[in-house]
């Protein structure tokens, strides 16, 4: 199937075409740029939500319940779910679907699992383009689920308009440790497993961390903290309301456009940088190792060497 036909079928709502397109994105197929350029004009209207947080906090379970609520409103939902690939074999076990099983047969829910394939930042290299493809296919909501993250994986903030950080009680000082990075990108905090004896403590901890930030910067909106249970669905309705409120406030304040512009810009830069990096790698692999030999022998410093290569390409 050629790129054109695929794109047409995708735009007409053919899920197999969407699945193929996402594979092409993931495999960096040479057709990808053309496909994206066709799809791009059909995107931009969906509600995009990113879920992030440490492994085991309950991201997938919460998403499963949230999808239910969106489906009650007859919204079409796409999910891009990322799990880590092995850095050694590049293989991966993608297990987020286990929690989403209730939605497998719903033709208005499209779920795609991705291995991060070495991409840093919590998402896979192709996640954002996969989200775009889902939008062009006709989903009203695109949900990004990062792999379990530590502190510095904040890419989801540029992929999604609203970021939900899922935490679990009992992690104690972990919240403290999360102060920077991932804590800063969250628009909504979700303390999952709210039946846990230490759930309220966790909430208080998050709140006090946020209050310090608020004191230092009183103009920034204070993120909501929601208590949820992924197993029973408790609190998910409130979570959905907060997501929608957040989106509405972004639209009203003009912040949405600002965010989207920044994110598009960042995407363009990172795509170009990635391409450049591949070119540099190619250049170094293409026989001519003289320049590297000079670096190894300490005749040439690494920065001058990279400047030289950069000029050449």
């Amino acid at each position: 199937m050629n790129g054109n036909e695929l794109t047409e079928r995708l735009l007409s709502g053919d899920r197999r075409a969407l699945a193929r397109v996402i594979s092409k994105i993931e495999d960096e197929d040479p057709q990808t740029p053309d496909i994206i350029s066709e799809l791009y004009q059909h995107t931009g209207a969906a509600l995009s939500v990113g879920f992030t947080g440490p492994p085991g906090a309950g991201k997938s379970s919460i998403i499963a319940k949230l999808i239910e609520l969106f489906r009650e409103e007859d919204k079409k939902v796409g999910v891009v779910s990322v799990d880590p690939s092995s850095p050694f074999t590049k293989g991966a076990i993608l297990g987020d679907r286990i929690r989403l099983v209730d939605h497998f047969l719903d033709k208005n829910v499209f779920i795609r699992s991705m291995g991060n394939r070495g991409h840093l930042g919590g998402l896979a290299g192709g996640s954002r383009l996969a989200g775009l493809a889902m939008e062009a296919y006709g989903t009203d909501v695109v949900i990004y689920e990062t792999m379990g993250v530590g502190q510095g994986e904040v890419e989801v903030a540029s992929a999604a308009d609203t970021v939900v950080l899922c935490l679990q009680p009992g992690a104690g000082d972990a919240v403290q440790a999360l102060k920077a990075g991932v804590m800063e990108i969250a628009d909504i905090f979700c303390i999952n497993k709210s039946d846990h004896p230490q759930a309220n403590e966790a909430k208080a901890e998050v709140r006090s961390t946020l209050e310090i930030g608020h004191e230092l910067d009183p103009d920034a909106p204070m993120p909501s903290i929601i208590m949820t249970r992924g197993d029973t669905g408790e609190g998910i309705e409130e979570l959905k309301e907060k997501i929608e409120e957040h989106r509405a406030s972004l639209e009203k304040s003009g912040e949405l456009e600002k965010r989207q512009r920044a994110s598009q810009r960042e995407f363009v830069v990172s795509w170009a940088a990635n391409k450049m990096q591949n070119k540099v790698q190619e250049r170094l692999q293409r026989g001519d190792t003289k320049i590297m030999e000079r670096v190894y022998k300490r005749e040439l410093d690494p920065i001058s060497a990279s400047e030289k290569i950069f000029e050449e390409i």
């Binding site: 197999r16 993608l94 099983v101 499209f110 795609r112």
Partner: peptide, 25 residues
């Protein structure tokens, strides 16, 4: 996985319809 493949693991009690729909998506 150790052979470098991506394995989509869907858990227990799957129906043929669920398996095929997963495979397509």
């Amino acid at each position: 996985r150790d052979a470098g493949m991506e394995v989509i693991y869907t858990g227990l009690h799957q129906t043929p319809d669920q398996i095929v729909e997963t495979t397509i998506q």
